[in-house]
């Protein structure tokens, strides 16, 4: 018998990770937008993500929809608990999402939609980080419902994770631009990638230490002998990747910095998984407690096993179609 709840937990985690990486770089473009200085560079940066941002954001819908489908109890506890950050995130996504089309059509209000793009991206990233922090620090549950207050999510820890994600997304955006652009904009991107990389690595370290102090459970997982043999490679790999990223930024303007950054995100995510497994509402509800009946999980799994490879295939194709460096002025507007 397959452990369907476990399989679904892995799949949902994977789709959240894919979301974070994919929408991360296009949100990052939004965060970096005001620092790109010239309108031409802003156009190029925005056009580099315009064909793919829609698909990127769909992974967020899959995260939410998938959680509703497979862990309805977790969904119904987490959403009220994260009411405010989730709503602000949605509003942020609205403001940035419409900017892709609106800024070309606005005749004279373009600046306003540039701001809308930036602020929307920042708010969305910040709120996602806050939601992550609030999730990790634990959520109060009574029976089958959220039992905490409306502002429980707001703590120094969640603000820290919020800031971290803004900087991390900016790093993803900057290394994406290193890969997709050249000339003046590419050089600018390298500079911003360096700054945000330092910030990102510092935040990873800070949050890791802060997490250890949140709950004795975390300290035990990461320091108990001999389990430490399995988990210790994670921080080492982070350090190695950061070093590799730094060096690759000084060399060719290619895909390496972007891939290294993705590596950093994957490792951080794995670290998070090690800390929280098997909870879907930390530290109260496990994936098996919250899972929908096997009949529901199985029904969705059958189609997913077929559709997900297809999705990855044509998404990959769409990326491949728009591969290579951006030419200034390219786009359909």
């Amino acid at each position: 018998m397959i452990d369907l709840p476990l399989l679904w937990a892995l799949l949902i985690a994977a789709s959240i990770l894919i979301y974070v990486i994919l929408d991360g770089f296009d949100l990052g473009i939004g965060i970096l937008f005001p620092f790109l200085e010239t309108d031409e560079d802003r156009d190029t940066a925005m056009n580099s993500v315009a064909p793919v941002w829609d698909g990127n954001e769909t992974w967020l819908v899959l995260g939410g929809g998938g959680l509703f489908a497979t862990f309805p109890l977790a969904y119904s506890v987490l959403m009220p608990a994260l009411y405010v950050p989730v709503l602000l995130m949605l509003l942020g996504l609205i403001f940035r999402g419409v900017a892709f089309e609106f800024r070309w059509k606005s005749r004279g209000h373009r600046k306003a939609w540039d701001h809308s793009f930036t602020i929307g991206s920042m708010v969305a990233a910040f709120c996602q980080g806050i939601a992550l922090g609030a999730f990790v620090q634990g959520i109060e549950v009574d029976g089958r419902a959220y039992a905490g207050g409306w502002w429980d999510w707001l703590t120094p820890f969640s603000l820290l994770t919020g800031l971290a994600l803004v900087i991390g997304y900016a790093l993803l955006g900057a290394t994406w631009l290193v890969m997709k652009t050249e000339g003046r904009l590419g050089l600018k991107a390298v500079r911003y990638a360096r700054v945000t990389m330092i910030g990102t690595v510092m935040f990873i370290a800070l949050i890791s230490l802060a997490t250890l102090s949140l709950d004795p459970r975390f300290m035990e997982i990461w320091t108990a002998w001999p389990a430490i043999l399995y988990v210790a490679p994670v921080p080492f790999a982070v350090a190695l990747l950061a070093f590799y990223l730094w060096r690759s930024l000084g060399r060719a303007m290619d895909h390496r910095p972007f891939l290294a950054t993705i590596g950093l995100f994957v490792l951080s995510f794995v670290g998070l998984g090690i800390s929280l497994f098997p909870y879907v509402v930390p530290l109260n509800i496990t994936i098996w407690d919250a899972a929908a009946p096997d009949k529901s999980l199985g029904f969705l799994m059958v189609g997913t096993a077929f559709l997900l490879p297809l999705i990855l295939g044509y998404t990959g194709y769409a990326y491949w179609v728009f591969r290579g460096k951006m030419k200034p002025g390219e786009g359909y507007h």
Partner: peptide, 26 residues
């Protein structure tokens, strides 16, 4: 309603939203 309606919404995302968004760029 999650166990009943969730998978249907899941299929909407997987079969429709990704298809639209994936090919919209092209």
């Amino acid at each position: 309603t999650g166990p009943v309606l969730g998978p249907l919404l899941g299929y909407e995302v997987l079969s429709a939203f990704f298809l639209e968004a994936g090919f919209l760029g092209i």
